[in-house]
Design a protein around this nucleic acid. Structure first.
Lengths: 157, 157
DNA sequence: GCATAACGAATGAAAATTCATATGTCAGGC
DNA sequence: GCCTGACATATGAATTTTCATTCGTTATGC
């Protein structure tokens, strides 16, 4: 069953953006099932992971880091505040800014999860002994930067 | 501004799963803004892209290919049927199965989008002249396959 | 200083997604 | 044939996300 198109050569199967999304999704899904067992949702994990090692992030900063929109993050934080995982703090200099801090409950949650995540990452990497981990990570980081967006002045020259 | 943690060494910034998600998200977002200009939503594009070159996919097949859950796909297809983009067809042999076909409207939409997607992919790849495109795609495809899931018998041996 | 633009976060209604489950169909054992 | 379990899709309520906009606050030009 499910082989109505055995030799299907779908466009997507050689499309970089699709392979990236699917590859990312596949390995992430493995980890997400571990999260479920701990009773932690994916967005909550992302916020905690971002905050650990970088406390006092802003709402917008967290949104960007977690690949969410700002209003989504605001509402996610509402729930996390309600659940006693983080708290909002005013910024000392700029009263527009809200800084997010983990509460003990959050610290405790993330502590275990970080171990699980690191173990899982090592397990993933061990599946591909041939690849150069550093090179791959360097490439992915390079992909994250916005394209230079050619300036008009450069064109006009 | 926004440099409260200039040297922040967040765990996530060296975490493979995060780099994959973020890298994928970054390049996809570029394309998604092109989709917006055409007035096509991301899930609709994914369904169309999947169907092109592989017509008659099942609902579950599409869900998996588009990284959505099956109920989400059912409802997405409801909307696409309503909008005259695709239609549902009964399977000849198995009456449980619903096969999805593009309608002329869908064919027309995807035709242009495929060109945009291919152009964009080429543009992305041109940013990284050093990387081996085939090797990268091979790796991503390898990541997509579920881990072998060690069998008990193997452990018992 | 004051007007205006830019920015960060919050809000509310509408839309999409999820979770658990229901419905209908097929496959296998007996 | 009939029962049981697996499977494909659909459904409905609850949750989450999105889009557009609003509210305060800070930056800039004059």
């Amino acid at each position: 069953m499910e082989h109505a198109n055995p030799k299907s050569d779908r466009f997507v199967d050689d499309y970089l953006l699709y392979l990236l999304a699917r590859g990312s999704h596949a390995v992430s899904t493995e980890f997400h099932s571990k999260l479920r067992k701990e009773g932690v949702s994916v967005p909550v994990w992302r916020v905690l992971a971002t905050l650990s090692g970088s406390p006092g992030e802003t709402v917008t900063g967290l949104a960007e880091a977690c690949l969410l929109q700002q209003p989504t993050m605001t509402k996610l934080l509402d729930r996390m505040v309600r659940d006693g995982i983080v708290k909002r703090m005013p910024d000392a200099r700029d009263r527009r800014v809200v800084r997010i801090q983990m509460l003990p409950r959050g610290e405790h949650m993330v502590k275990d999860l970080l171990v699980v995540a690191k173990t899982h990452e090592a397990e993933i990497l061990s599946r591909f002994p041939d690849i150069d981990q550093l090179q791959l990570k360097r490439l992915l980081r390079a992909m994250m930067v916005k394209p230079p967006k050619v300036r008009r002045s450069a064109l006009a020259a």
